[in-house]
Structure formats: C-alpha cells, structure tokens
Nucleic acid binder design. Sequence first.
DNA 1: TTTTTACCTTGACAAGTGTCAAGTTCCGGG
DNA 2: CCCGGAACTTGACACTTGTCAAGGTAAAAA
Lengths: 211, 211
Amino acid sequence: MARQATGAAKREAVAEVVRDDKFNARRIELAEAALETLGELGFARTSLREIAQNSAFTHGVFHYYFSDKLDLICCCVRHYKAKCVTRYDEVVATATSRDELTEGFLAKLAATLQNEARMHRLWYDLRSQAMFEAAFRKDVLEIDKSLEAMIWRIASRYAELGNKRPASSPAALYALFDGLFQGALLKHLAGDKAAIAELLDEVRRLLPTVC
Amino acid sequence: MARQATGAAKREAVAEVVRDDKFNARRIELAEAALETLGELGFARTSLREIAQNSAFTHGVFHYYFSDKLDLICCCVRHYKAKCVTRYDEVVATATSRDELTEGFLAKLAATLQNEARMHRLWYDLRSQAMFEAAFRKDVLEIDKSLEAMIWRIASRYAELGNKRPASSPAALYALFDGLFQGALLKHLAGDKAAIAELLDEVRRLLPTVC
DNA sequence: TTTTTACCTTGACAAGTGTCAAGTTCCGGG
DNA sequence: CCCGGAACTTGACACTTGTCAAGGTAAAAA
C-alpha cells in the first residue's frame, strides 16, 4: 500500500514535470512568434492582438500562457539572450591566429547586422525601456553583462594570440563595441549602404590598439 | 499709392513674421511641457492627453500647434538638442591644463547624470525609436553627429593640452563615451549608488590612453 | 462699434488596447 | 466508452488613444 502510494505520487510528479515542460515549450513558441512582430514594430507599437494576428495563435492564448504583457516581453527578452551571447563562441574556439579571429569575428558581425537587424533594434528598444520600466531591469542588466562577457572573451583570445593582454577594462571594451554597433545599426536601417563596411573598417583598425 | 501699397505690404509681412515668432515660441513652450511627461513615462506610454494634464494646457492646443504626435515629438527632440550639445563648451574653452579639463568634464558629467537622468533616458528611447520610425531618423542622426562633435571637441582639446593628438577616430571616441554613459545611466536608474562614481573612474583612467 | 481673425476649449468619435469570463475542443486516465 | 480537466477560442468589458469639428473668447482691424 505504501509502495502503491509512492508509485502513484511518483507518477503524478512525473506527469507534472512533463506538463511543466510542455508549458514552457509552448511559452517559448509563443515568445518566438511575438519576437517577429516586436522586431517589426518595436515595443511601443506592438499589441497582443497584433502579435497574435502575425502568428498562428489567437490573442487569448497569450493571456493563457503569460500573466500579462510584461511577462510575455520578459520571456521574449530572456529567450533572445540565450541565442545571442554564443554567436562568436565558435570563432573564438577555433581561431588559431589573430587574423583568423579578426576575420571570423568581422564576418559574423557583418552577417548579424545584415540579417538580424530587427532583433538588434528590438534589443536596443528594450534596453531603453528598462530605463523607464523597472520590471525589465533585472533581465536587461543580466543580458548586458552576458554581452560584456562575450566581448571580453573575444578580446582576451585576441590578446592571447598576440601574447598580449587587453588594454582596457571589460566595461570600456563593451561600451566601445556596443556603441559602434548601435551607431552602425541605426545608419544601416536608415539606408546607409556603407554603414556595415565602415563598422568593419573601424573595428579592424581598433582591435590591435585595444588588445 | 505705390508707396501706400508697399507700406501696407511691409506691415503685413512684419505682422506675419511676428505671428510666426509667437507661433514658434508657443511651440517651444508646449514642447518643453511635453518633455516633462516624456522624460517621466517614455515615448511608449506617453499620450497627448497625459502631456496636457501634466501641463497648463488642454489637449486641444497640442493639436492646434502640431500637425500630429510625431510632429510634436520631433519638435521636442530638436529643442532638446540645442540645450544638450553645448554642455561642455565652457569647460573646454576655459581649461588651461589637462587636469583642469578632466575635472571640469567629469564634474559636468556627474551632474547631468544625476540631475537630468530623465532627459537622457528619453534621448536613448527616441534614438531607439528612430530605428523603427523613419520620421525620427533625420533629427536623431543629426543630434548624434552633434554629440560626436561635442566629444571630439573635448578630446581634441585634451590632446592639445598634452601636445598630443587623439588616438582614435571621432566615431570610436563617441561610441566609447556614449556606451559608458548609457550603461552608467541604466545602472544609476536601477538604483546602483556606485554607478556614477564607477563611470568617473573609468573615464579618468581612459582619457590619457585615448588622447 | 462692428467684424474678422487668431487662439483656445470642449466634447465627441472611431479605432484600438489589455484583460478576462464564458464557452468549446480535445485528449488521456479510469 | 466516458468524463474531467487542460488547452484553446471567442466575444465582451472598460478604458485609452489620436483626431477633429463645433463653438467660444478676446484682441485686432475696419
């Protein structure tokens, strides 16, 4: 009888975990769909209904899976992060010379600026929103840290390949690259065809001087 | 008769100029009032009615002086710019040594971060909005250029006072300082008491290495 | 004084918003 | 097979939004 009870309890617990996994998987599905519209319209102009219309879901589902709009957006941001911070890891891991690392880094940089401009502008939008909306701050600060670490990994490896050490702090390096990227993104979105090339030139020139 | 006609025409022209001046003065008054609310709530959550309620005006006046919401916001941004880009001019003009320039610059930096945080976050908000809303781009890009020039004036003078030349491009320098400022602003708004001090330290350390 | 004009107020409208409760469908366990 | 609950849809709610037209007021022009 005790065994039966434990068995039943265990089965119930397992079932709950499975349900939770399904629940979370669905949340991510919905977040991914929401990211499409958010990237298109930005935080200010995106409504739950618009998100739903641009997806295979009805607007009610979003309320079923998220307690409110902020909850949804936060989930989107967190999901976005996971994809983002590993972008250059492979390049860092496989490059065997400074040139190789430089070219690999620049290639990825140009590609993501070209192909994922909408996701990047959404990130800058949300980071700005975090200055107004306290609910965003924790997630945004965490992502910012991860991005800083990502840049630091690249710079460290680059320095290492030249038997040097990075010349600035992680914060300054991140500020520099993030600032350049943000500027290039805005110019690129404004139709400036040379924006990406200029960013690459600038970074190529800068790398040897900061590491 | 001809004289009379010219006289009348002249008077009319003068009257029109006066009217235009009054009109523009009123627009700026309204824009200034709007900036209060925009700085408080951000672009996304600010409505014309809310702007009106937090001011001495009724919501109809805004529609009388601005063709639509974007027109109002653009006017706000342009007005904001004029105030912003001259912040460090006096320090640059009067400093007679590197130390003097550094301390003057850092003092202004700390003060504006402390006292005008709401205006600064609004700027970052609007710059992000420009990535979505084409109507903002022209003004935003222009302000960005002015800010870059502002930083460049500081760096040039700093280098000059040490008989050196700036070690990076205007774009890279602006990206660096803007990135650091943005990060410090976010941390400051998130309640990080050390954010401002850390920014000052970082800039103090950085200045001699980039100029 | 009368009339016109600029300036501003008020109230209304339609469209859109987040939220949620009431239903419907569907599937797994009994 | 059936039934209970999870998953989802639908429609409605209270509210806010940008926009604008109709009206009023006071100062300037005639």
